[in-house]
């Protein structure tokens, strides 16, 4: 059986010949650290850290775990952010604004 490889950088699709070669669970064989999924974003959230009160509600609500908590301040990881704007909706002090993604 082909095992998922930690830290494997290639996201090339692996072909299986037989059911026995496949893992039981439908699992991505490459680490998602190298599979950037933020490409299809059409808008991006931008945090104004001067307005931010560090309540971290955006970090808690982000459905894609794309907001990082660095020393008590939120940072958006644009490699994974899909632009759903939930952080904009949840921010109680309106410190997150929306920007059009430039193509």
């Amino acid at each position: 059986m082909k095992k998922p490889v930690s830290g494997k950088k290639s996201i090339k699709q692996i072909k299986f010949k037989k059911a026995g070669d496949m893992p039981p669970v439908a699992i991505s064989l490459a680490s998602m650290l190298y599979n950037k999924t933020g490409k299809w974003r059409s808008i991006r959230p931008v945090i104004d850290l001067n307005k931010c009160t560090s309540c971290m509600l955006c970090w808690k609500f982000c459905p894609d775990v794309a907001i990082k908590n660095i020393d008590g301040k939120p940072y958006i990881d644009l490699d994974y952010c899909k632009g759903c704007a939930i952080c904009i909706e949840e921010c109680p002090v309106k410190a997150v604004r929306v920007e059009e993604e430039k193509k």
């Binding site: 998922p4 930690s6 830290g7 669970v25 439908a26 699992i27 991505s28 064989l29 490459a30 680490s31 998602m32 650290l33 599979n35």
Partner: peptide, 10 residues
């Protein structure tokens, strides 16, 4: 620390 997608599109 080693994130993989589970149950993704197949």
């Amino acid at each position: 620390n080693d994130p993989h997608t589970f149950g993704g599109l197949t």
